[in-house]
Every structure is written in C-alpha cells, then in structure tokens.
Design a protein around this nucleic acid. Structure first.
Lengths: 191, 191
DNA sequence: ATATCCATACAGACCTGTCTGTTTATTATA
DNA sequence: TATAATAAACAGACAGGTCTGTATGGATAT
C-alpha cells in the first residue's frame, strides 16, 4: 500500500490512456512510448506499476470490462425509465453503443483476433468475459420474457455478437434493430 | 508479364505462406522476415512482387477470399450430395469450418480488428467481402426457402457472423447448430 | 541474354524494457 | 514547528532486438 496517493493517479492515467489507444488503434499498433506520452507519465512509472506490456494489456481489459458494464447498465436504465422492458432496453443500449463515434466493435473480440496465442492471460480473460456477458444477457432475457425464454438465450447471444461485428463491417447501427426483431420472434416461439 | 513462369512460383509461395501465417498468428504479429523464411524466398523477390507489406496484405486477403469461397462451396456440395438443401448444407459447411484445427475466426473480421485505419485498402476490402458474403448467403436462403424468406436474410446473416465469432470465444462449434435452428425458426415465420 | 530469383548486408525507424539520477510530496521524528 | 526519511513520479539516455524497405552481387534458367 502506498502512503501518498492510495489509488495512484499515475496508474489510473496509464490504464485509461492505454484503454483508449488500444481500443481505437489496436493493441499491437500502440507502443509503450505512445501510452506514456499521452498519459503524461514517465516510462519507469509505467514499469513500476506493470511488469510488462502484456500485464498492462490484461489490466486494461479488466478496466474495459468494468467501464463497458457501467456504460451498458447506465444506458439500459435510461431506456427502462422510458418504459422499455429490460430486453428492449438492452437492444436500445446496444444501438447507442454502435452509434458512438469511436465505435470499433467489441474490445475483447478484437483482442482475441490480434493477440492470438501471444498473450494467453489476456485471451483467456476475453473468453471469460464473453461467458460472463452471455450469463448477464441470459438473465435479462429471463427477466423480461420468462424462464421458458432461456431456451433461445444462446441463439439471442449469437445474434448480439453478430450485430456487434456487423455494425463494424457495415459501418452503421442497423444490425441492432434487425437482431432485436429476430430475438423477439425467437422468444415468441417459446410461448 | 514475366517470360519464365507466368504465375510466378515464388509469388504464389509468398501469398500462400503469408496467408497461413497472417491468419494463424495475426498480420501485425508476423514480420516480412518470417514470411520470406517460411516461403523459401529472398526478401527482394517479395519486394519485387509487392511494393510494401500493406500491398501484400491486400493480395493475401483477396487470395483468402478465393480460397474460402472454394472451401465453403466444396463442403456445401459434399453435404448437398448427401441430400441436404443448400441452406442446411451451408450450416453443415460452416460447422466443418469451425471444427478445423486451425480455426481462428473470420480472417476479414480479424483484419478489420487489428488493422483499423492503418491500411484503408485492406479494411475496405474486408467490408466489401462481408457485403459479398451477405449477398451469397441471401441467394442460398432464397434458393432453399423461397423469395419470401429474403425478409429474414439480414437476420440470418447476423446469426452467421455471430456464430463465427462465438465459435472462437467458446472454442467449439456449437454455435453453428444453434444458429441453424434459429435460422429455421425465422424462416418458418415468413411462410 | 534477359529476367527471375537467391543470399546477405545494411539503413533507419521503432519496439520493449532497464538504468541513473532528480524532483516532489507525504510521513515520521526531533 | 522544523527537519529528516521515505516513496512515488519525472526525465531522458540507453541496450538489444525487430521492423520495413533498399542495395549489391551472384546464381539459375529460358
């Protein structure tokens, strides 16, 4: 435990800056020098907090998961307060995300794509994230459509993953609405 | 046009080797030296055929599309000869693909993820590929389920994209069957 | 005899990670 | 309250390696 600033200010700046750069330009495309320059931090400060870039990447992914969950939850609450059930609110939040100017798909799928086997801790975390995301989405489905709807939860999760990547390749947010309509049809089949 | 070997043997080896390495380890993760070493080619031979690595990447993606189309078509024909209609044959071929030992998702989505804006020609080609893929799949859907099924073609395309990435993050081919079931439900709704 | 290909060295930039030493700010002690 | 000790961050040079791309010269084959 440090005695000066407990959650070190520099460390926070490093993670936030790296998250932004890694997501927007790619992990391999961004060097340590870029991170320390834009975080206004000395190189040794970074290496005092993180043993290596690979370790920084893992911390950045953990931070990204937290921030992403916060973002999605907050957007969902917004839409739920306007009368949408939790599943509709989820898809509305998904569309909000797709429409962000800096949207570049799922950070964890991107990391899986570019890191391959070079950073197993990071890629394992990405797979774990996807499992957690699937569980959360399944709960949302059950909450707004009943337990019998759990039968189509895996299919809806696949729809959501497909919408995420389609929004990237097509450059628009149309996939959110299409996936939502399909999800509703699948759910209606379980009743 | 060269007068010795028209479709130069060295060029072919370069593209095939680069395709294999880029797909399995990532484009940025593989340097030119790796490519020339494993292709048994001199560095100048590579740079005589391709002005830069970015240009090689584009050629590799074009080659990948050809090879992928050949693979999928061939697998589909195999399954169609066993009595499956074209859509069922498509999903069976998709599952075959997922089960390849070297499966690492869609090369074009992976390239979009790691190249970002650093190679616009390549990323444009990836988006174009996805558009072509969507058109082909739509034709398959119409062929095996009728023109009215075209209404759910965009949703089925999203299911397929989702299955492709889910097969990566989950490390198995289950998503193929789940996506297929969902696609059948969506199609049955159009009748 | 012309073009392709091979082998190798090289330039210059960039990469991760280390080292040294200075500054700053908080904490402990006199 | 003044001072010493401690810890964190800063600045910047540096090592060793890898990257892309170029240059040179010799081998091979049509």
């Amino acid at each position: 435990m440090s005695k000066t600033q407990r959650p070190s200010n520099a460390r926070k700046r490093i993670v936030e800056t790296a998250e932004k750069l890694f997501y927007s330009e790619g992990i391999r495309a961004v060097g340590i020098d870029r991170v320390i320059a834009e975080a206004w931090v000395a190189k040794m400060t970074l290496y005092n907090h993180f043993p290596s870039k690979d370790d920084l990447v893992v911390e950045v992914l953990k931070y990204r998961e937290e921030q992403f969950n916060l973002y999605l939850r907050q957007r969902m609450l917004e839409h739920q307060s306007q009368g949408l059930n939790s599943l509709k609110a989820f898809f509305a939040a998904l569309k909000d995300w797709f429409q962000c100017s800096d949207y570049r798909g799922c950070a964890f799928l991107n990391a899986l794509a570019e890191l391959a086997d070079s950073n197993p801790t990071a890629t394992d975390f990405c797979s774990d994230h996807k499992r957690r995301f699937k569980e959360q989405l399944t709960e949302i489905i059950i909450e707004s459509a009943g337990t019998q709807a759990a039968a189509v939860a895996p299919a809806i999760c696949i729809l959501v993953e497909g919408a995420i990547v389609t929004a990237v390749s097509e450059g628009n947010a149309d996939a959110a609405g299409i996936a939502e309509q399909a999800a509703e049809i699948l759910i209606s089949q379980t009743k």
